[in-house]
Design a protein around this nucleic acid. Structure first.
Length: 649
RNA sequence: GCCGAUGUAGCUCAGGGGUAGAGCGUUUCCUUGGUAAGGAAGAGGUCAUGGGUUCAAUUCCCAUCAUUGGCUCCA
């Protein structure tokens, strides 16, 4: 007998060799139907694997990440089996489960290309194989056996993986005709896989290394029920409707032109209005925090970036230098603002009493991003950073850092970004070539960030190797509509640029000292921030931000004059109002303006003109009754006021 | 940059070896209306660009450019 301890602490006895599935059966038939994997002493196992000694266990269902993982990982093997059947001789890389489904990286052999058009074929084969209800059979193999199996199969990718494993830890899983190197766990059989969708096909470098061969990555998702697949597809479709590229076009916020160049966004009037309001909002916050505005040119002498170290690191990712024919000087379109700000710091002697100096600039920068990386407004070649550099004394660093955290959290709260990830990006200690500066300064910078986060009680994740080349960062990441993570706000501690630019201040001791720099951008880039904002709000911006707050709709042409008067009165009291005097019926005007996500529609006809009132219609909420123009104007201004003041609470 | 996909009217898209279609929008006219699409008529396209195959290419092939799903990169 073995003693099995459950998560709630209860202990039950079972025959030695009992499986997870049998334990589930002993609890309830329903659980037995739903259980997908099990953890045995914190190791995840197949539910069909025999437990031979006392253990603490936890059973996982679809609702648990571990359960989904087993399901999708098993599905990846099923897909591999299907691919092997369809493309004999195919070689396999890795096939993990991911957040939403799974993929398999495969090498179909020279000259064989798997195209989008092949996706239905793969899907059909997977369904056909799943119906065979083959069991996933686990076996422990020696390294020699493992190597010989894949040597026979001529699969160099698997051989590479096996060579990195230790003998005695290697397991194979086999279902039907397909055997794979795998740690598991897997489902008992393929029978649970009822719904299959191959989602996309893409290239992916073997082991993520662009110098190595590019394999074909096939993304797919599976479910235990057909209905779940349908729901998932509907969700994907809904998410696509929030795509900022689509809404940006619909609402006339921004555009791209081939004649201007790829990755160079054009802000249309409404988008520019939105962005301007965001900028003004941040400027106001920054004034409160003691920032001073600076303005620097769009180009700078190449030497500036050689000094900063950016040129050595990113010279190739910059637009090529502009030459002055007479002097033969080289200028770069500025890829970042910090060197310019360092030069501002140097314009006069600085005393320790002057610090911290907080220089802020909405600085437009240009980077020659790889063409395959460009994406709507989230990844562009010309963008505006809400940049600032704080020059401070070492003893002020942590406090300044915390204040920047406060600003970013304030901004995110104001725009209702609740789900964000705060990432501490540290250096990869193994990889010295990636970074500049002394060990000592890196230690200081990294601990300053970690301590500041602790003192602000922040929930952070730590990533090694994600630091900037000159210093560690704290990054605020937000997901877009289709689940991709984007870095928005960022705070970076930098001991290196002050060194390179020989920045100094006079200390209280009468000796010159080196200041520390904090680079920070709460929005990150205006372009990316607006993109994510569009996707979060689906284009329904908060009243205080939206380019058009009110549209006045006359019932017929007879009331155009009154409607225009209403609109003018509102505009004069700082409400952004426009007139829709098209020759259309009222129903049509309401529909069109609702689709444009206008927060308030004012319907005016005979009644309203006689009584100096407006009929108010709130977006998505229908008729709200009549008000006088003054009442409405006060109401809107009050709403805006309240929205903004509620952020402070 | 690499692998795949896409490129037809302002927008969303259909079509297909014999030089093109729908819906929406736009223009004009009719209509003057009460809370999510009033009616009619018209304009609008070197079918991304450049080559090739063919009697004939927007359609097939190749290249380029742009967009796009990923990979790599991201100061």
């Amino acid at each position: 007998m073995v003693k099995i301890t459950f998560p709630d602490g209860t202990v039950r006895e079972y025959e030695a060799g009992v499986t997870g599935l049998e334990i589930a059966k002993s609890i309830s038939p329903r659980l037995a139907k739903e259980v997908l994997s099990i953890s045995v002493n914190d190791e995840t196992w197949d539910i069909s694997r025999a437990i031979t000694s006392d253990a603490s266990i936890k059973l996982y269902k679809w609702e648990d990440e571990e359960g989904k993982h087993a399901f999708w990982h098993s599905s990846a093997h099923l897909m591999a089996e299907a691919l092997e059947a369809l493309y004999p001789g195919m070689k396999f890389g890795i096939g993990p489960s991911i957040e939403n489904g799974f993929y398999y990286d495969v090498d179909p052999g020279d000259g064989v290309v798997i195209r989008d058009a092949d996706m239905p074929k793969i899907e059909a084969k997977m369904k056909e194989l799943a119906r065979l209800k083959n069991a996933y059979q686990r076996s422990e193999v020696s390294k020699a056996e493992a190597l010989s199996y894949f040597t026979e199969k001529n699969d160099e990718y698997k051989l590479e993986l096996i060579n990195e494993l230790e003998d005695g830890t290697i397991t194979f899983y086999k279902q039907g005709e397909f055997t794979d190197l795998c740690r598991g766990p897997h489902l008992p059989s393929t029978s649970a896989i009822k719904a299959v969708k191959v989602l996309s096909i893409a290239g992916a470098y073997w082991r993520g290394d662009e110098k190595r061969k590019q394999l074909t990555r096939i993304y797919a998702i599976t479910f235990p029920k057909q209905k779940m697949l349908e729901e998932c597809l509907v969700k994907l479709e809904e998410a696509q409707k929030r795509d900022h590229r689509k809404i940006g076009k619909e609402l006339e916020l921004f555009a791209f032109s081939q004649n201007v160049g790829q990755g160079l966004p054009l802000w249309l009037p409404k988008g520019a209005m939105l962005r301007e309001r965001l900028e003004n909002f941040l400027k106001k916050v920054q004034r409160k925090y003691g920032y001073v505005p600076v303005i620097t040119p769009h180009i700078g002498n190449k030497q500036l970036y050689v000094t900063s170290g950016h040129y050595a690191k990113y010279g190739e990712d910059s637009f090529q230098p502009i030459n002055t024919p007479a002097e033969g000087e080289e200028f770069l379109l500025k890829p970042m603002n910090c060197p310019h700000h360092c030069e501002i710091f140097k314009t006069k002697p600085v005393s320790y009493r002057d610090l911290p100096i907080r220089m802020a600039e909405f600085g437009t920068v240009y980077r020659y991003e790889q063409s395959g990386e460009l994406h709507g407004l989230t990844r562009v070649r010309g963008f505006t950073q809400d940049d600032a550099h704080i020059f401070c004394r070492p003893d002020q660093l942590k406090d300044e850092f915390k204040k920047v955290i406060d600003i970013i959290q304030y901004i995110f709260k104001a725009l209702d970004f609740k789900d964000y990830i705060v990432q501490v990006s540290l250096r990869d200690k193994e990889n010295h070539e990636k970074y500049i500066g002394t060990e000592e300064n890196w230690e200081k910078a990294e601990s300053a960030i970690i301590e500041a986060c602790d003192e602000r009680g922040m929930n952070t994740i730590v990533e090694y190797g994600e630091a900037a080349f000159y210093g560690p960062k704290l990054d605020f990441m937000v997901r877009d509509a289709i689940g991709r993570k984007w870095q928005l706000g960022t705070i970076q501690v930098d001991y290196n640029l002050p060194e390179r630019f020989e920045l100094e201040y006079m200390g209280s001791d009468g000796v010159k000292h080196r200041p520390v720099m904090i680079h920070r951008a709460p929005f990150g880039s205006m372009e990316r921030f607006v993109a994510v904002l569009i996707e979060h709000t689906a284009g329904k911006f908060p009243l205080w931000l939206t380019p058009e707050q009110v549209v006045v709709l006359p019932i017929s042409e007879k009331y155009n004059e009154y409607a225009e008067k209403v609109s003018n009165v509102l505009n004069n009291s700082d409400i952004r109002s426009v007139l829709d005097d098209r020759n259309e019926k009222i129903g049509r005007k309401i529909r069109d303006n609702e689709l444009k996500r206008i927060p308030f529609l004012l319907i005016v006809g005979e009644k309203e003109a006689e009584t100096n009132t407006v009929s108010v219609r709130k977006q998505g909420d229908g008729d709200k009754g009549a008000m006088t123009i003054e009442e409405f104007s006060a109401f809107i201004n009050n709403e805006v006021e309240e929205q903004l003041s509620s952020i402070d609470k």
